Computed example of a mutant assay.
Amino acid sequence: MMRKIKLTRANKSILLKALAPYYYKQRALRRSTGFVEKLILKINALPADKKTNFSPDEIRLMRTTVNQLRNERLAKGQYTDAVDDMLLKLF
């Protein structure tokens, strides 16, 4: 079931920062990256503050990668409020 999510500019930036390492890791392992590529292009092309439909698989991938970014920042003692806000949108 598709779900509409509204992304701000900050949230788009966070998602792209979270998805990039996952994309490059999959590419380095010579795994298929088509799904991730399409999601990155979809997010990049979205106008800010407009609701867009995302599939459960897309939401699951976004949630996983944003959570990894959050955990990395926490481990380094960095500020995570913006990332936490993004995670709340995905739940």
Score class of each variant (00 low, 15 high):
residue 50 K to H: 04
residue 46 L to E: 02
residue 42 K to P: 05
residue 39 L to N: 02
residue 54 F to Q: 08
residue 58 E to D: 02
residue 73 R to E: 10
residue 65 T to G: 10
residue 35 F to V: 10
residue 28 A to T: 00
residue 76 K to C: 04
residue 28 A to V: 00
residue 13 S to L: 15
residue 25 K to R: 10
residue 52 T to N: 14
residue 24 Y to F: 15
residue 76 K to E: 14
residue 24 Y to I: 12
residue 90 L to A: 10
residue 69 L to V: 07
residue 70 R to Q: 12
residue 7 L to P: 00
residue 32 S to D: 15
residue 10 A to Q: 03
residue 19 L to N: 03
residue 36 V to I: 13
residue 5 I to N: 06
residue 49 D to N: 15
residue 69 L to T: 07
residue 84 D to S: 10
residue 89 K to D: 03
residue 84 D to E: 14
residue 59 I to E: 00
residue 68 Q to F: 14
residue 13 S to M: 15
residue 22 Y to L: 09
residue 4 K to I: 03
residue 3 R to C: 04
residue 48 A to Q: 02
residue 14 I to Y: 03
residue 32 S to C: 11
residue 37 E to C: 01
residue 62 M to W: 04
residue 90 L to H: 07
residue 88 L to T: 12
residue 39 L to W: 01
residue 45 A to F: 03
residue 88 L to Q: 11
residue 30 R to F: 14
residue 76 K to S: 10
residue 85 D to E: 13
residue 62 M to G: 04
residue 28 A to N: 00
residue 87 L to V: 05
residue 32 S to V: 11
residue 18 A to G: 06
residue 38 K to Y: 08
residue 26 Q to W: 02
residue 44 N to D: 13
residue 67 N to F: 11
residue 46 L to C: 08
residue 25 K to F: 08
residue 60 R to G: 13
residue 72 E to M: 10
residue 26 Q to A: 09
residue 48 A to P: 04
residue 72 E to Q: 14
residue 59 I to Q: 03
residue 84 D to G: 05
residue 6 K to C: 13
residue 41 L to C: 05
residue 2 M to L: 15
residue 65 T to Y: 12
residue 53 N to R: 02
residue 74 L to W: 01
residue 47 P to M: 08
residue 42 K to S: 05
residue 62 M to K: 03
residue 85 D to M: 10
residue 67 N to R: 13
residue 25 K to W: 08
residue 18 A to F: 08
residue 29 L to Q: 08
residue 3 R to T: 11
residue 83 V to I: 07
residue 87 L to Y: 00
residue 67 N to K: 12
residue 68 Q to I: 14
residue 6 K to S: 14
residue 63 R to E: 13
residue 85 D to Y: 10
residue 60 R to K: 15
residue 12 K to M: 00
residue 62 M to P: 01
residue 83 V to C: 00
residue 15 L to S: 01
residue 20 A to E: 14
residue 85 D to F: 09
residue 35 F to A: 06
residue 56 P to G: 01
residue 16 L to P: 06
